[in-house]
Write a protein that binds this DNA or RNA. Structure first.
Length: 932
RNA sequence: GCCCGGGUGGUGGAAUCGGUAGACACGCAGGACUUAAAAUCCUGUGGCCAGCAAUGGCUGUGUGGGUUCAAGUCCCACCCCGGGUACCA
């Protein structure tokens, strides 16, 4: 080959790898296993854009690196194929989502194949295939058939719960939904319906009422995302909060273990923080307040029982059960109106908007447990029904929301301040570093002591107790959608029963339209004759998007197993994920559920590991750069953005006369628009006139936003690969910056990587296409160049700094080129070192240099430290902390001598200005600082 | 609002443990080669000031304070941008 023909090389090497089936992996006990996993993509209709492969490239580098280091690497890929966009598309076009999903997957596969990933495609999974979701349903059944035993601290089969019911009745130590207590005898005498109803309160998958955003016009529940200003984003219909009976998973039983488990895994602290905050453990107390003149009690959770003497009012969530019962007749109307207003807001709006304080007095009063004083009871939307007990004791001096509320309602002023020597007139004091006063038996105690003392007293009086609360809520599992896993449940006398395992999968039935039924039921209600055994109604909701992704990593271990979700052998060999890579936006969704399911499966003895992923890396997003051309409103006149102001002045126009329109990113280079391409791109612009700057250029305004078709800023990896080759694309994505940061895609700079690859090529071939590589002994300087790179790349890969690896390769190749080093002893280890980043060219040059087997079977180079030892160091010399000069000293030279010589340096003397030396800071091999 | 990130030249970024700020690239400017262009190669390139020049000085990591012999890095306060906020995936 005369010169580098990248597409031919990539083709040739791809064929070579395919012939060898080089990415097929099997359990092999002679090697240590290493499981590298990417968060699998949702196959959207838009195809892959340049942002998707970022993480896949990084994980592919790790996979190849580990393989070269002797590990048996599992590196699979699949598709998270159930989801809303496909369903939305189906609603609009009538196309079955299975078909669009299949097409999208095909397109994804084509794109992925071009980038040279080492995926073992024989292990591909698709969550929407019955062979896969059979096992998602199977896991649901395991959840349904389990309860959480607080004594053994794990999930157990419901059979052990029934045994305990027979012995101790509802005294069993379990995580359960609230229900009436019962005795062992009462249990035994219950009929089937009664027993099943009780059991549902304990199952890890259970039916319960949950608050949802219900949109009557669309006949479905909406995500907070899909609701804006109280109306649906689609169509603008009103949305209300409604209680709905839904399947939920009892993740709260695992709150403490999910929290503790974080200590044992190598995830970033920020990711762990996000999960810790989400779980939201807080320690405090339950306190029961009686409602004056009634038998009702308001149970509140508080983390600050020490401030109980500062309670100025009570606040219930507008949805709280007691509201109806305690509101006095004269306040009824106002309360009902307020409830309606609150119901129109999403939970997010309610907790976000702290500036608009609102609330409504119920007319009822609670009694202070210690003073028996009357405390007014309000409802307010800042109290959420879903957190704690849905009621708070409001202490204006100690809580900023309560403080704002009190300031807003003059009737609540003045309020008691229970903190000694703290001014709370302007804002609340939330610190626990305070001494309590105005508080009877708590007076003089520090807050932490007062908390303990108060809980003791509440417990003694039987009106409260110590309580650990979690913000984490049970996960609602049912969706009013079509394109998801059917929940394998049927109803008999209104009691849900799960399908027998041997009848799985319960296939998604065909329906005529992908919208709710005429009666407002979920789409599955449209399925004709869809009944269990032809008699019993099936569950009509489907599973959420996260169901299939909560366990997929197990399926990759044994993807085609028809009789188990994965064999015991496969699970035992592959265990867990060693390296997991995906976006940080999954912090509190997927990553929590995936840990939860793993723990449940572990408790039930199905999998060996308790945590799914030992190590996690979050890659950032690649954003798009949008370009907009300035156009004079109502005219076909476009003005170069850099001279826009001058033009406007000249024409006596203002900025209001300017309208910016999108230009396609492909017509723009270096902020300059190809005006001819722009003109032909859109028929509307065919008569456009352009006002150029004095260089005859037309510049556009550019800014960063999410990559999206409608913004004309999508860059497709295929185009980049076609122009520059896969190796260059891979290296450039890594070169862009730290993997975990988000950054806009900009091809400025890709030429540098492309030049690097050509430079590498020139180490092997001259312009005439003659091989330059030879077997002479490499000089010490050459070895030093190589081993410096080996050391740095190894270190950087271990700390996942991919961008600096690329720089290191550039430095190495620059140095080798400058010295005209073409020794095989230098170049061949370099190829192996480079292989994870640039698999095609490294494999090609490897084979061309006479090797018969793949570079993937070569030995990864190890840095020889002895080659890198330096004898001297050029010390930066500072005087009073300012760097003034440099001085070269042997590294083994005595510190005293160096100090003495340094002081004598002319430039040092100059800056010392004759002042006496106070101190000399000497850090060997780093710096010298002279303090005068 | 709350939680989690981030802010360094014209641009992407480097500086791993508190120790030479700007590695490596892009871009730009100048030069070589060429009939010309592309490609390639060489030189310069944070800003300001002085000097013909070598060079020297000042300044500089979002803003304002602080700790330290020494701060991009640590602490306090603030500003701006991105992500999440429980039915988008």
């Amino acid at each position: 080959m005369n010169d580098m023909d990248i597409s031919r090389i990539e083709q040739e090497i791809n064929d070579f790898w395919n012939r060898q089936q080089i990415y097929r992996v099997k359990a092999d006990t002679s090697k240590p296993k290493y499981y590298v996993l990417d968060m699998f993509p949702y196959p959207s209709g838009a195809g892959l854009h340049v942002g998707h492969p970022l993480g896949y490239i990084a994980s592919d580098i790790i996979s190849r690196y580990k393989r070269l280091k002797g590990y048996n690497v599992l590196h699979p890929m699949g598709y998270d194929a159930f989801g809303l966009p496909a369903e939305q598309y189906a609603i609009q076009t009538g196309q079955h989502p299975a078909i669009t999903s299949r097409n999208n997957i095909e397109r994804y596969r084509e794109q992925l194949d071009k980038i040279g990933f080492s995926f073992d495609w024989s292990r591909e999974v698709r969550t929407c295939e019955p062979e896969y979701y059979k096992w998602t349903q199977w896991i649901f059944i395991q959840l349904y058939n389990s309860w959480y035993n607080k004594d053994t601290n794990r999930a157990e089969p419901v059979s052990t719960l029934i045994k305990q019911f027979e012995e101790v009745g509802s005294q069993v130590h379990a995580y359960a939904s609230p229900h009436e207590p019962f005795t062992p005898n009462a249990w035994k005498q219950m009929n089937e319906v009664g027993q099943q109803t009780i059991l549902l309160h304990y199952r890890l998958a259970y039916l319960a009422d949950s608050w949802v955003n219900w949109c009557p016009a669309l006949g479905c529940v909406l995500a907070n995302d899909e609701v804006r200003d109280g109306v649906s984003e689609r169509g603008g219909y009103p949305v209300e909060q409604r209680l709905m009976k839904q399947w939920s998973l009892r993740i709260t039983a695992y709150a403490e273990r999910l929290l503790q488990g974080l200590n044992a895994i190598d995830w970033s602290e920020s990711m762990k923080d996000a999960q810790r905050n989400w779980i939201g453990k807080s320690e405090g107390a339950y306190v029961r307040f009686s409602v004056a003149d009634t038998t009702h009690q308001i149970n509140v959770f508080t983390t600050r029982p020490d401030t109980i003497f500062g309670v100025a009012f009570m606040v219930l969530a507008p949805e709280h059960d007691l509201v109806e019962r305690i509101t006095t007749p004269e306040h009824k109307q106002a309360i009902t109106e307020y409830q309606k207003k609150a119901a129109a807001k999403t939970e997010r709006d309610r907790s976000t908007d702290v500036k608009n304080i609102s609330g409504c007095f119920t007319g009822a009063y609670a009694l202070h447990p210690f003073t028996q004083k009357q405390i007014p009871i309000y409802i307010a939307d800042y109290v959420l029904a879903t957190y704690g007990t849905g009621a708070v004791m409001a202490v204006p001096c100690g809580d900023s929301r309560d403080h704002r509320f009190a300031k807003h309602f003059t009737a609540l002023n003045p309020f008691v301040n229970v903190f000694e020597g703290v001014d709370v007139s302007v804002e609340a004091c939330e610190s626990k570093d305070v001494v309590i006063t105005n508080s009877d038996f708590l007076n003089g105690l520090k807050a932490p002591d007062a908390i303990q003392r108060c809980i003791e007293e509440l417990t003694r009086m039987g009106i409260g107790e110590r309580k650990t609360n979690y913000r984490l809520r049970d996960a609602v599992f049912g969706r009013q959608r079509y394109w998801g896993e059917p929940i394998p449940v049927y109803y008999k006398e209104n009691i849900p029963y799960v399908l027998p395992e041997h009848e799985l999968p319960l296939r998604l039935p065909e329906i005529d339209k992908y919208i709710p039924s005429e009666t407002g039921e979920p789409p599955l209600a449209r399925a004709k004759d869809w009944k269990y055994m032809g008699i019993y109604e099936y569950e009509k909701t489907t599973m959420p998007g996260w169901a299939g992704s909560s366990w997929y990593f197990f399926r990759y271990m044994d993807p085609n197993n028809p009789s188990a979700f994965a064999s015991k052998e496969a699970l035992h060999y592959w265990q867990d994920v060693d390296f997991y890579l995906g976006g940080s936006e999954h912090a509190t969704g997927h990553l929590l559920y995936f840990r939860f399911w793993t723990k449940v499966l572990h408790d039930l003895g199905h999998v060996p590991c308790d945590e799914p992923a030992r190590k996690l890396l979050n890659q950032g997003m690649i954003q798009g750069i949008s370009s907009m051309a300035a156009r004079i409103k109502g005219k076909q006149v476009f003005v170069s953005n850099d001279i826009l102001n001058d033009y406007l002045t000249e024409q006596q126009l203002s900025h209001d006369d300017v309208q910016y329109v999108y230009a396609d990113i492909h017509q723009v280079s270096n902020q300059k628009l190809d005006t001819e391409a722009f003109r032909t791109w859109n028929a509307d612009y065919s008569t456009a006139q352009f006002v150029y700057n004095n260089k005859k250029e037309f510049t556009v305004k550019q800014f960063v936003e999410k990559m999206s078709k409608s913004k004309y800023n999508v860059v497709n990896p295929d185009d980049v690969v076609a122009t520059y080759g896969a190796d260059c694309f891979r290296m450039y994505e890594m070169f862009l910056g730290p993997i975990e940061l988000s950054k806009p895609w900009d091809t400025q700079g890709i030429d540098g990587v492309s030049r690097f690859i050509r430079k590498l090529w020139r180490l092997f071939y001259n312009e005439q296409g003659q091989q330059l590589i030879h077997n002479d002994k490499a000089p010490a300087e050459g070895l030093k160049i190589l081993h410096r790179a080996i050391k740095k790349v190894n270190e950087d890969l271990e700390r996942l700094s991919f961008n600096t690896c690329v720089s290191t390769f550039m430095i190495c190749v620059n140095d080798l080129s400058a010295n005209k080093y073409h020794h095989a002893e230098l170049l061949k280890p370099l190829l192996t070192l480079l292989h994870p980043f640039a698999p095609f060219i490294s494999e090609y040059l490897w084979l061309q240099s006479g090797e018969k087997t793949s570079i993937l079977d070569s030995v990864y180079p190890v840095a020889d430290e002895s080659l890198l030892i330096e004898n001297t160091f050029e010390y930066p010399v500072s005087v009073n902390g300012k760097m003034r000069t440099k001085a070269l000293f042997p590294l083994d030279k005595d510190q005293k001598e160096i100090e003495a010589e340094t002081i004598q340096l002319e430039s040092v003397q100059k800056w010392m200005e004759g002042k006496p030396v106070k101190k000399i800071i000497f850090v060997k091999g780093r710096m010298i600082n002279i303090v005068v």
